[in-house]
Simulated scan of single mutants.
Amino acid sequence: MLTDTKEKLYQCDVCEKNYAHGRYLKTHMLIHTKEKPHRCVACEKSFSVISNLKSHMLTHTKEKRYLCDVCEKRFARGRDLNTHVNILTEMTSTDLGVDQTDICDQRFLEGGNVKRHMLKHSIEKLQRCDVCEKTFTQSSTLKRHMLTHTKEKPHQCNVCGKTFIRLGILKQHMVTHTNEKPHRCDVCEKRFARKDVLKKHMLVHIDEKPFRCDLCDTGFTQSGNLKRHLLTHTNEKPYRCVVCEKRFRINSNLKTHMLTHTKERRYQCDTCGKKFTQHGNLKTHMLIHTKKKPHRCDVCYKTFTHSGNLKRHMLTHQKM
């Protein structure tokens, strides 16, 4: 209801709390009704406020926007960063025995800034990498990090022999050999081998594209896609074939191209045994066996197995 005051405050009928705008009252009322209309399409968790949903979605995309200026660790949510800083403050002031005395003579207007600055001095007592000077709170984490410098990959795939730094990455890789796709999108029914890829895919259904190109304002769901897009403006092609020196914007395109030199054909048709260098070519080939013709002419409704055949067919209508 609207209260009779000069400020025209909107008052909650349940707890009598006042709000300057009706939309704020409407959001507040969800606390009393327990209604949570905003649902995550990835894990089905529900939220009363859409901003909380957007913040939650970052846990699925693995995007970490918030940077700790003390140890440079990144977090998906601002409150997670605040919790981290509080823990780091307590740890460095007690466990590490920091003496809060003058060290560098730098001065601050607020006491909170002094404490935050002191963490940068106390961080020196953490586990530090001798190569890149990155710091860690635990020696086990530092040990895993060192593998990125030594290039050591102790976990090996027993199917193809490929090696990996972490066991978790090896487990994800093993799915590529089984061709299993147990994770299904409830919206479009597309299937994925890995759950994290499904979670990233779900962003296309909520139409949330927080990463925008400064040049053309195109939006993207992931920062990596934005980085690849920017190469279209610079015409930069950083990935070069060592055999023929052909260049590519994306590393995956280079890997696919390399198969033309190795003549390796990884993808085999289960029906006739024919092999292909690319999975997309195998999918197109399978249409021969399934008799499916997904490409349809909008003029005469004739269908075709390949898009190229449809394009050639469309020319017959232009001549008429």
Results as ranks from 00 to 15, higher is better:
Thr178Asn: 06
Met202Trp: 00
Thr137Tyr: 03
Val197Cys: 08
Gln127Trp: 03
Gly161Asp: 00
Pro154Gln: 07
Ser122Ala: 14
Leu109Thr: 15
Val187Ala: 00
Cys188Ala: 07
Asp186Val: 05
Cys129Thr: 04
Gln172Ile: 05
His117Glu: 06
Arg144Ser: 13
Thr148Asn: 08
Lys171Arg: 12
Thr148Phe: 10
Gln172Lys: 09
Gln138Cys: 04
Phe108Cys: 02
Thr135Glu: 14
Lys181Gln: 10
Gln127Val: 02
Lys134Gln: 12
Phe136Glu: 00
Gly112Asp: 12
Glu180Asn: 05
Ile169Gly: 08
His117Leu: 07
His155Phe: 15
Lys171Ile: 10
Thr150Lys: 04
Lys151His: 14
Leu142Cys: 01
Gln138Asp: 09
Lys162Ala: 10
Gln156Cys: 07
Lys171Gly: 08
Glu124Met: 08
Leu147Met: 14
Lys162Tyr: 12
Arg184Cys: 08
Val187Arg: 00
Asp186Lys: 07
Gln156Trp: 03
Glu180Cys: 02
Glu189Lys: 12
Val159Asn: 00
His117Trp: 07
Gln156His: 15
Val131Cys: 12
Cys188Met: 05
Ile165Thr: 11
Thr178Gln: 04
Lys200Ala: 02
Leu119Thr: 00
Leu119Cys: 05
Lys143Ile: 13
Gln106Tyr: 04
Ser139Leu: 12
His117Asp: 08
His121Leu: 09
Val187Gln: 01
Cys132Ser: 07
Gln138Arg: 13
Ile169Tyr: 15
Asp130Trp: 10
Val159Gly: 01
Met118Gly: 03
Thr135Gln: 13
Glu110Gln: 12
Ile103Ala: 11
His173Gln: 08
Pro154Asn: 13
Met146Pro: 03
Lys153Cys: 00
Cys104Asn: 07
Cys188Leu: 01
Val159Cys: 03
Pro154Glu: 11
Thr163Val: 08
Glu180Val: 03
Val114Asp: 08
Gln106Asp: 06
Thr137Cys: 07
Arg144Pro: 05
Lys200Val: 05
Asn113Pro: 03
Thr135Trp: 02
Ile165Trp: 04
Asn113Ala: 11
Glu110Ile: 11
Asp105Ala: 07
Asn158Ile: 05
Gly161Lys: 04
Asn179Lys: 11
Cys132Asn: 11
Lys143Thr: 15
Thr135Asp: 09
Cys132Leu: 01
Asp105Glu: 13
Val197Leu: 11
Lys181His: 03
Leu198Arg: 05
Arg191Gly: 07
Pro154Val: 06
Pro182Ile: 01
Leu167Met: 14
Phe108Glu: 05
Arg128Glu: 14
Asn113Glu: 12
Leu203Phe: 15
Lys162Gly: 06
Leu203Ser: 01
Gly168Tyr: 10
Phe164Glu: 09
Cys129Asn: 09
Gly111Lys: 15
Arg128Asn: 14
Lys171Gln: 15
Lys171Ala: 10
Phe192Leu: 11
Phe108Tyr: 09
Ile103Gly: 04
Leu126Lys: 07
Lys195Val: 13
Gln127Phe: 06
Thr163Ser: 15
Lys151Ser: 11
Gly161His: 00
Met146Val: 10
Asn158Asp: 15
Cys160Lys: 00
Leu147Lys: 12
Lys171Trp: 11
Asn158Trp: 02
Arg166Met: 14
Phe108Trp: 00
Met174Leu: 15
Arg144Gly: 09
Val175Lys: 06
Thr137Phe: 06
Thr150Gly: 03
Lys200Asp: 04
Met118Ala: 01
His117Arg: 09
Glu189Arg: 03
Asp105Leu: 06
Met146Asn: 14
Leu109Ala: 15
Thr150Arg: 01
Leu203Asn: 02
Leu167Pro: 11
Glu124Ser: 07
